[in-house]
Amino acid sequence: MSAAAVTARRWAPPLVGFGSVLVILAVVEVLIRIGAINHYIVPLPSEVATSLVRVIFEEDILHRFLITAWECLAAGALLTVFGVAAGIAFHQARLLRLACENWVAAMASAPLVLAYPLFLVLFGRSALTIIMMSFLVGLPPVILKTIEGLSATRRVLINVGRSFKLTPAQQFWKILFPSALPTIFVGIRLGLMFALINVVAVEFLINFGGLGQLINDLAERYDLPGVYAAICFVVLISVVFFVLTERTERWLRSAA
């Protein structure tokens, strides 16, 4: 196969994918212009694109982005510290793990974010509500993945530690924890994703804070192209965040 053919094979699928998105947008643009789709329900894609620039400059989006990022970071720090600590505790105390691991798994399947009105009462309409809510929602995956990582340490490694007569503390810090680190990071990544989703969601719902509130604001002002543009911006941010954490995870796995 020639070099050109290899390049073509590699780039054809993403080009077709991206091309299809452009074609769909163009079709929507045409349908709106000829009046088949109501202009007051779906704004012109071209209008949304120009609104994106407007929203970025006029709505102080950098400031809002920083608020959201800060809330995510705070929730992320909390769930890393408490989630990993709880996971280690569960792993070390077998009885506790047998008693509670299923509870944590059940917690992961409960719609915890529905408790946001309760958090509003407890912490007020403030950043603390958003942070605590996102922390709670992101917690179960971190705990479960920490337990999973620690329990999956290879028997050989543990035996090596034993043959070196490592103390329990050394055994933990030199053998168990490093071997579990990639899996723990998977948990933290999941927790951070849940945290980001919930930070934006709660901001939107309680109309407070950063990017989530911006969407609510624009919707209440009936600035339709603005709403679409802001949604695109938030989707873009979460995709970038997702890709970054995924790269870090892959890098950690290859380093381990």
């Binding site: 993403p14 994918g17 299809s20 980001l196 969601a201 709403v227 938030v234 989707v235 890709v243």
Partner: peptide, 22 residues
Amino acid sequence: AKAFEPYLYYLGPTPKIIFFPV
């Protein structure tokens, strides 16, 4: 899969509630 799955994969974990006004 190569053409369209990335869109699903990356749109999956975005907060859906922001689409509610739309």
